[in-house]
Amino acid sequence: MLDSIPSFARLVAELSKFPGIGQKTATRLAFFLLRQPAVEAEALSTAILELKRQIRFCSICYHITEQNPCGLCTSQSRDESLLCVVEEPQALLAIERSHSFRGRYHVLHGALSPLEGVGPDDIYIAPLMQRLGQGDIKEVLVATNFTVEGDATALYLARLIHPLGIRVTRLAYGIPMGSELEYIDEATVNRAVQGRREF
C-alpha cells in the first residue's frame, strides 16, 4: 500500500532502522511528521544534519565532541595521573553522572569480539597505548562492560599496560554480569568506581 506513496515509504524505511523501532512505530512517527508544520520537519532535519556535521571524535580521548580537543581533555581541574577506559561514550556519561571519577577518559568504541570480527586493531587501543607512553598516567581504570567481551578486552589491556609500570584497576563487582554500564544506576556505578581493585 505504501509503495504507491514513495516519499512516505522512504521515510518509514529510514525510521525503522532506529534501534527499538519497528515498521508499525515508524509508520506512526511518519504520520506524526506529516501532520506537523513544515518548520518542525525542517528543524528536525537540520538537527540531524548538524549532529553529523558538528560532532566528531576528540583526537585525544575519542569521546564525542564539537570542539577538539574536548572539554574533558582541556579541563584544568581533572587529575592527569588517572585514566578511565570505556567501551562507548554512553559509558563515559554514566560514570560522569555518578560523580565518582575525576581523572581523564579514553573511549575504545567497541570491545574485542572475534565472532563479530572485532580485533585489537579495530578499536582505539593503539592511540591509548600512545597516550600511556607519554608518561603522565599512573593508573588506568578499565571500565569496560561486565560482559564476556568487556572482560576479555580488560584482560587484553591489562597485559599490554602492565609492562609499562602503570597500575591497572578494574571496576569492583556488584554490577551484574552481562550488563552494560550505561544502564546501571549512579549509586552502583559510584560504588564500583570507589571499590575498584588491582587487576
Binding site: 574485542l112 572475534p114 585489537p120 567481551e149 576479555a152
Partner: peptide, 25 residues
Amino acid sequence: RILKQRNQLLKRQAREQELQPWTVA
C-alpha cells in the same frame, strides 16, 4: 560464549597475544 569466541580465534590462527585473554577468560 567465551568458548565460541576462542574457537573463532583458533580457527583463524590468530596471534598468541590475541588468544591469550580468551584463554584466561
